[in-house]
Design a binder for these strands. Structure first.
Length: 646
RNA sequence: GCUACUGUGGCUCAAUGGCAGAGCAGCUCAUUCGUAAUGAGCAGGUUGUCAGUUCGAUUCUGACCAGUAGCUCCA
């Protein structure tokens, strides 16, 4: 007999050799029905796992992350089975569970189109209705390779070959007429996959390498109940409504023009106003913290980029002016600010007394992004970033890095984005040497310096291999957009290589010339991307201090126009952004429009208000707030504006 | 760049191998109204662009431009 410790420290005895599924069954039919997988002594395992010794068993259902993963992984096998039924010549690649569902990659000729999805989904439903049992078995490597190669599954053979040296058997899962190479775990049967939906089909490269064949990827999601699927699809629809690319255009923050070109958004007055507010805020805050503003050119001779290494690494991504073959001098629009600001440092000889030297710039950059990469305001060809470079001694590095991070965190907290970010420590990949400059020793040093700083500051981070800049490691502050796609909002980088390339030196206290460390950093990222995330964060209803129009004065009729103008002047003099709706419309109509425009305050003036120097205040959020003396109103708005309240 | 999809007035959408239609927004007039839509009228389109097929193309085909999702890339 063995002892199995269950949830709530309940211990039960079973015969040795019992499988986790049978244990689950003995605990109740409801739990057995809901069980997706389990953890045995904390190890994520299949319910088919045979237990031979005392252990702790935790049953995982769809409510657990790993339970969901198992559920969706099985759904991906059903997808593959359905595809094999309908298109037998299709070859299988991989089919994992992802954040909110699953996908499967197929080598299908021709590639699947949206029209195929419905057919495949219907076939999946048939398979699920039959409630086929999944059977796990394993084979020695040679037999596994033979089986897969007999099946004609070239991609699977490639995967199996990679396990050849491990000496372990290769596991398979079989459901009816379908067998797939798979480590599992899986559900016991396809029956629990009550509600499934195939969501889209796209291309995806085999092994994530653009040089390989492009496969046809089908995405889907599945739930144990139809209601849950419905809720999931509703959530996606709701998210679409706050997509910055839709909402930002509706609210007239920005637009685009075919004749101007891709990735070149036009900031309309309201969007430009928000960016101006952000820029002023950033520049003022940076000045308070000892940063000095520079203004450097938007282009340079190719020589500059050759020296920095950007010409070698990113020439294709730059807008080059002129022809290298024909012209004596070739220029390029700047894709980054680094070497421009270095010239400011190089203006004269520097001493350790000049350090740290903190140079910031509201810097417009140009990158010739590939046509498929552009997206709304998130990824564009021209953008403006709060960029800065900080030259310091090794002793100052940790303190200055911390200051840069604190500034970034202050910015995020003020904007209300702090709760939404995560940290990524982006390292180089020693196996991808052509991407990076410097020696392994230099990389080890720079990375260990950054790692020490991050650990010391207790920053919780994920590691990103091969995510570093070509000259040094990065701390990337990541944020997800409304569709769950992650992007870098802020980055702080340590660079000990470029100073040497540019002969940047300082005379230390001991009289010896040394290269400074350089921190590349942004305090708020690029304004276009930040605006995009703010639009989505607030669904267009910005906090007062960021609102392009903070209050709209709505006269009931023409009689109050003069008073409305007086009120508007008073508010403007107090530094507030105000508009008057002078149209001869009913008050309900004016309110509706102001509300849809997401103006924070509506100030209604009728005869009653004019008489007593009052104003009826309506808030976007709370509706009618009643009457208020004008001086009191101004005091309230000015205070809210100054505190940057959210 | 790759795969798939999309493109009809400012917006949301309809229709057709044979005269392109509606609502909202806009403009004009009337209305001067108390917390989310007053009424009437007017105007607005070479159906993304350029070719091809056709007696005739907005519809079919191709190329290009732009947009969406995903992949790859992101200094």
């Amino acid at each position: 007999m063995i002892k199995i410790t269950l949830k709530g420290d309940v211990v039960k005895e079973f015969d040795a050799g019992v499988c986790a599924a049978d244990v689950t069954k003995s605990l109740g039919a409801g739990l057995f029905k809901a069980a997706c997988a389990c953890e045995i002594d904390g190890v994520y395992s299949d319910l088919r796992t045979v237990i031979n010794k005392d252990c702790a068993l935790n049953i995982l259902t769809f409510d657990d992350e790993l339970g969901k993963k198992t559920f969706w992984h099985t759904a991906s096998h059903v997808l593959a089975q359905a595809v094999k039924h309908l298109y037998p010549s299709t070859k299988l690649a991989i089919g994992p569970a992802i954040d909110n569902g699953f996908y499967y990659d197929f080598d299908a000729r021709p590639a699947f189109t949206n029209d195929d999805l419905q057919k495949i989904e219907d076939e999946m439903k048939k398979i699920i209705k039959n409630g086929t049992e999944l059977i796990r078995f394993s084979l020695p490597i040679e037999q596994a390779q033979k089986l897969l190669s007999d099946m004609g599954e070239d991609y699977k053979v490639e995967l199996a070959n990679e396990h050849a040296s491990s000496g372990e058997e290769i596991s398979f899962y079989k459901q009816g007429d379908f067998t797939d190479l798979c480590a599992g775990p899986h559900l016991l049967s396809t029956a629990p996959l009550k509600a499934i939906k195939l969501t889209q089909c796209t291309g995806a490269y085999w092994r994530a390498d653009a040089n390989n064949t492009q496969l046809s990827r089908i995405y889907g999601t599945a739930f144990p109940k139809a209601l849950m699927l419905g809720e999931h699809l509703t959530r996606i629809e709701e998210a679409k409504k706050r997509d910055h690319n839709k909402l930002g255009r509706e609210l007239e923050l920005f637009t685009t023009s075919d004749i101007i070109g891709q990735g070149l958004p036009i900031m309309l007055p309201k969007g430009a106003k928000i960016i101006q507010i952000l820029q002023r805020f950033v520049e003022d805050e940076e000045e308070k913290r000892g940063w000095q503003l520079t203004k450097t050119p938007l282009m340079a001779k190719s020589d500059l980029y050759k020296l920095s290494g950007h010409w070698d690494h990113y020439k294709d991504g730059m807008f080059v002016l002129g022809d290298e073959e024909k012209d004596e001098e070739v220029f390029a629009l700047r894709p980054m600010t680094c070497p421009f600001q270095y010239q400011a440092y190089l203006n004269r000889g520097r001493s350790y007394r000049d350090l740290p030297m903190r140079l910031n710039e509201t810097s417009t950059l140009f990158r010739n992004e590939a046509s498929g990469e552009m997206h709304g305001l998130i990824r564009v060809r021209q953008f403006t970033i709060s960029e800065g470079h900080l030259m310091c001694t090794p002793a100052q590095l940790e303190g200055e890095f911390k200051n840069c991070l604190e500034l970034a965190i202050y910015m995020l907290k003020t904007l209300g984005l702090y709760e939404d970010v995560s940290y990524r420590f982006s390292k180089w990949d020693p196996n991808n040497r052509e991407k990076y400059i410097g020696t392994p020793e230099q990389w080890d040093e720079a990375q260990s310096v950054m790692e020490n700083i991050l650990n010391h500051l207790e920053i919780p981070y994920k590691v990103g291999i091969d995510e570093a800049a070509f000259y040094g490691p990065k701390l990337d502050i990541q944020i997800k957009n409304v569709h769950g796609k992650e992007d870098t909002l802020i980055t702080i980088q340590i660079d000990q290589l470029l100073a040497e390339k540019f002969s940047m030196e300082y005379v230390d206290a001991d009289g010896v010339k040394k290269n400074p460390y350089i921190i590349h950093r942004t305090s708020l990222g690029c304004y276009e991307r930040t605006l995009a995330l703010l639009i989505e964060k607030y669904a267009g209803a910005f906090p007062l201090w960021l609102s392009p129009i903070q209050a709209k004065i709505l006269p009931i009729g023409e009689r109050q126009l003069e008073y409305a103008k007086k009120l508007s002047d008073e508010l403007k003099n107090a530094g507030l952004r105000v508009e008057i709706d002078e149209r001869s419309e009913k008050i309900g109509y004016k309110i509706r429009e102001a509300q849809l425009e997401k103006v924070p305050y509506m100030l209604i003036v009728g005869d009653k208000e004019v008489e007593a120097d009052l104003c009826s205040v309506r808030s976007r959020k709370d509706g009618d707030k009643g009457q208020m003396p004008v001086n009191e109103l101004i005091k309230m708005l000015v205070t809210e504006n100054a505190t940057k309240a959210r």
